[in-house]
Structure formats: structure tokens, C-alpha cells
């Protein structure tokens, strides 16, 4: 179980949220909602351990993340709003190198299957430089398929730049993963319907009333 306990996040001299406490249950999709600038991305980065909270802590299976970095990194999959795709490498090379470093499956067959599933079978050896923005997002999302077994998915705007069919396919994949008992936390500005158990977390509700002195 992933828990956020009394998290406070300060950006510059502004408190984004204070005392944010939430339990992210397995088998539930948590949608982090709110307008731009309330700290959705900041919250996701705190949850996956890329940033440290100014106060409070994030716990996974009851243990603070900092005390179990390796185990946590084996459990979590993070999809940031930056694609982590290098323009000079092909989709195959991009996936293989990053998957190997992250301890995800990275044999040629698995990677080719993931790329084929996202409709990139023909582009798999082209440099990413020549692909469209949507295709680049797909390369990044192919890592989601490689991370199929990870119990926690943290996804920052996974639907950006995808066409309607791809959005639907990705939503089905996320639902299936949630039904299998994974913990999924995501942000999105698109109206995507999920038929699984959903929860909404609004970091804006934990914002202090007025600016910090």
C-alpha cells in the first residue's frame, strides 16, 4: 500500500499544499485533479521519490521510500510528462537501454512486441527524430507495457498527444491493470472514462488559504 502522510510541498516562497494525507489503495485508480499550478506534477514526483517533501513522508508497504530505494524502484513505474526518448536513437534502442537500466524486461522479442502493440512496428529502427509528436509519446508509452508487472504506476498526463483510439486503448490497459490489483495514480486534463474503482485527490484542497509570509 502506498501512503502519503502529512506531505508539504513548497515551491519558491509558495506553499502548494500542506498536510496532504492520502492512502492509495491497491486496485483503485487515483486521479489527481485540479487546475494548472495546484501541484499535481509536484505531488506525483514526491510519490515516486524523485523529489523530497518539505515535510511528511511517503511510505510503501509501511516503510518510508528513502529507507528502501532499491525495492521501491523495483515496484514503481513512472511516466513523466517528459518522454525520456532520445532523438538520435531508434525506438528499439531507446526502450532497450532504459528498460535494462530500470530492471524491466528488455529482450528483443518483448520490446518488439511492445512497439508492435503501439503501432510502431514499422518505425522501430528509425531514429526518433523523424517520428511525429504522437509517435514519440507512443515510444514512451511502450515502456508501460514492459512495466506490466510493476505494482505501482504513477502516470503524469499519459494521454497527451494521443489520438482517440490510442486514448481508449491506453484507458483499457490502465483499467485492466487496476483490476489486477495495481495501484495507479494519474493526472489528466482529458475527459477519459474509467470503469474501474476510481478515487479523486485534489491537492488544491490542501493549499493554505493565503500566501506564506
Amino acid at each position: 500500500m502506498l501512503e502519503a502522510s502529512a506531505l508539504t510541498c513548497i515551491k519558491g516562497d509558495r506553499i502548494l499544499f500542506r498536510d496532504l494525507t492520502h492512502v492509495f489503495r491497491p486496485g483503485v485508480l487515483t486521479r489527481v485533479a485540479g487546475p494548472n499550478g495546484v501541484g499535481k506534477t509536484s505531488l506525483l514526483r514526491l510519490l515516486c521519490g524523485l523529489a523530497q517533501p518539505d515535510e511528511g513522508e511517503v511510505r510503501w508497504q509501511g516503510v518510508p521510500l528513502r529507507a528502501q530505494t532499491d525495492a521501491w524502484h523495483r515496484a514503481v513505474f513512472f511516466h513523466g510528462h517528459l518522454p525520456a526518448v532520445h532523438e538520435l536513437l531508434s525506438p528499439r534502442e531507446n526502450l532497450r537501454s532504459l528498460a535494462a537500466v530500470q530492471g524491466l524486461p528488455h529482450d528483443a522479442a518483448v520490446i518488439d512486441a511492445a512497439l508492435a502493440e503501439l503501432g510502431l512496428a514499422r518505425q522501430r529502427d528509425l531514429p526518433v527524430r523523424v517520428l511525429s509528436a504522437g509517435q514519440r509519446r507512443r515510444v514512451a508509452l511502450a515502456r508501460l507495457i514492459l512495466a506490466q508487472e510493476r505494482p505501482v504506476w504513477i502516470l503524469d498526463e499519459p494521454f497527451t498527444a494521443l489520438d482517440v483510439a490510442a486514448v481508449a486503448a491506453l484507458a483499457r490497459r490502465i483499467e485492466a491493470r487496476v483490476r489486477d490489483g495495481a495501484t495507479v495514480v494519474l493526472t489528466t486534463h482529458q475527459d477519459v472514462e474509467f470503469s474501474c474503482a476510481c478515487d479523486i485527490l485534489e491537492p488544491g484542497r490542501f493549499a493554505p488559504r493565503r500566501k506564506a509570509a
Binding site: D70, H73, F78, L82, A84, V101, Q102, G103
Partner: peptide, 8 residues
Amino acid sequence: EQLLLSPE
């Protein structure tokens, strides 16, 4: 950021 999430 993805590299920093490596379990190694």
C-alpha cells in the same frame, strides 16, 4: 529522472 529510478 528515469535513470534515477533505476533499482541498481
